[in-house]
């Protein structure tokens, strides 16, 4: 099976108040095509940072990241937006819908970057909203939707362009248990039925256990990998030994 995401010896440092913090420390991990992976770890372990780097919205100081065969770390800044539009679907913790647009218009937003006609964009957006079960709410503004519904619209927006990878940063963080489960079930469906490669950052064990594998990060290194649905949790000695791929 080919690696959809390959993180190879990635280091990322921040400077705060004159102090240099190493957020990712020679991190190595891989995610296969069609995989459904969660990243867990304490605050500051580098979960969101690696997600942002994989999505091309943050840069690395060293190492390489390839997504769908393309090296994101050496890609010219000018190309990144187009690449993101074609390959990545983002889902954020606080939903991040544009408040002045309806659910339908929010889903159409990334489709504006495709060569689709207006009619095709509309059809595609309706299809995405149908997948998340919100076709009947397409004319509603985010303020007229519940938190769970907002997140489903955000997921519809993420899948509207049929990207290779969906990156979800704490998608259930602002939701109650019931809605959180519903969102995770939706992501599971996208993975199993549409074959989407999904990486979820979460603090929520229940949510994480609904993914196929859990990658535990700590202090910027991959500490261990849990393969769900199997008794054995594969422990990794760390980034140096290799990957989280099964």
């Amino acid at each position: 099976m080919s690696h959809m995401i390959n993180v190879d010896n990635v280091t990322k440092r921040y400077e705060r108040g004159g102090e240099v913090l190493t957020v990712l420390d020679n991190l190595c991990l891989t995610v296969d095509q069609g995989d459904f992976v969660s990243l867990m770890g304490p605050s500051g372990s580098g979960k969101t940072t690696i997600l942002n780097c994989v999505g091309g919205i943050d840069t690395v100081d060293a190492g390489t990241i390839t997504v769908n065969g393309e090296d994101v770390t050496t890609m010219p800044q000018r190309r990144l937006p187009d690449w993101r539009a074609q390959n990545i679907g983002f889902v954020f913790q606080s939903f991040n819908l544009v408040p002045v647009l309806t659910a339908m218009e929010n889903v159409i937003l990334p489709l504006q970057l495709t060569p689709l006609s207006r009619k095709e964009r509309k059809a595609q957006a309706i299809f995405a909203l149908e997948i998340v079960g919100l076709a009947d709410r397409m004319g509603h503004r985010p303020s007229q939707l519940s938190g769970g519904q907002e997140q489903r619209v955000a997921i519809a927006r993420a899948i509207a362009t049929d990207p290779a990878v969906i990156l979800a940063d704490e998608p259930t963080g602002d939701l109650d248990r019931e809605n959180a489960n519903a969102i995770m079930e939706l992501l599971q469906r996208l993975n199993t039925e549409l074959g989407k490669t999904i990486v979820v950052v979460t603090h929520d064990h229940v949510a994480a256990e609904m993914t196929k594998r859990i990658l535990h990060l700590d202090k910027g290194v991959l500490e261990r990998t849990e393969v769900m649905g199997t008794a054995a949790a594969g422990a990794s000695a760390g980034a140096a030994s290799g990957t989280a791929a099964s």
Binding site: G55, I57, P81, D82, W83, R84, A85, Q86, F90, F92, N96, L97, V98, L109, P110, L113, R157
Partner: peptide
């Protein structure tokens, strides 16, 4: 600001 982030993340240029 937040909206700028969303649009950029979706692939809209700076």
């Amino acid at each position: 600001s937040s909206e700028a982030g969303i649009l950029k993340a979706l692939g809209f240029r700076n």
